[in-house]
């Protein structure tokens, strides 16, 4: 219970922070670039989701650097700390997935095609961020900060490549995505979850050997 409470509170603090920043950005940038209230709401939600994905991506490395050593130093075991970290990531993914679904209901096909596209792809990206978060934590635990930077660099290069090549193909990709059957999407979800579980096992194996030093 104590670990659910502690890591649950950490998750809600992050969600609250992201929501606050998203609303702030939405108000500032939405006022500049959008004309209608619905467009501004879309901008706000977009910022919340983008920051939420980044938060999910960096969660495990943040936990490995701060929260997990902290709770270890206060009598928590490694197994308990590991499950606490997973609980926090799960809470973040579920809540941002919920915002994705809400966004999909509110904005798809209403404002811009791009809004709808993001709403359809972001649920997968939320889980993929969780997967990458586990991977970054494994790299951090195994190779130290160097490992994390290598991981971040690789991800940045991959995303830059995708962004560059998809630049004028968003509509094509969205059409393809929309054309996918429900069962395929479920399969894709399942594959991401299995990948997450696989990396979590490796993460736990590496985390078990963590040496708590001065902090």
């Amino acid at each position: 219970m104590r670990t659910l409470k502690y890591f649950g509170v950490q998750a809600e603090k992050m969600v609250a922070f992201v929501m606050a920043m998203g609303i702030l950005y939405g108000i500032i940038f939405g006022s500049i670039f959008s004309e209608t209230m619905q467009e501004r709401s879309y901008v706000m939600t977009n910022y919340i989701l983008m920051m939420g994905i980044i938060v999910i991506l960096v969660t495990q490395t943040t936990l490995v650097k701060l929260n997990m050593p902290l709770v270890l130093s206060l009598g928590c075991g490694r197994k308990e700390a590991f499950w606490g970290a997973q609980w926090m990531t799960a809470l973040l993914i579920v809540q941002f997935e919920f915002i994705c679904l809400l966004s999909n209901m509110l904005f798809s096909n209403d404002i811009q095609e791009y809004a709808g596209f993001l709403a359809r792809i972001l649920p997968f990206i939320c889980i993929a961020s969780g997967v990458l978060s586990e991977l970054l934590a494994i790299l951090l635990l195994t190779f130290g900060n160097k490992g994390t930077w290598i991981g971040v660099l690789c991800m940045a290069l991959v995303w830059a490549f995708i962004g560059f090549t998809m630049n004028d193909r968003v509509k094509d990709f969205d059409r393809s995505l929309s054309a996918l059957s429900g069962s395929f999407r479920i399969t894709l979800f399942a594959v991401l979850l299995i990948l997450y579980a696989f990396l979590a096992v490796i993460y736990y194996y590496v985390w078990k050997k963590y040496e708590l030093k001065a902090f």
């Binding site: 104590r2 409470k5 502690y6 902290l70 709770v71 206060l74 009598g75 928590c76």
Partner: peptide, 10 residues
Amino acid sequence: DYLKTASIYL
């Protein structure tokens, strides 16, 4: 915050 965490875990 540190003392709050201690109170949760101890």
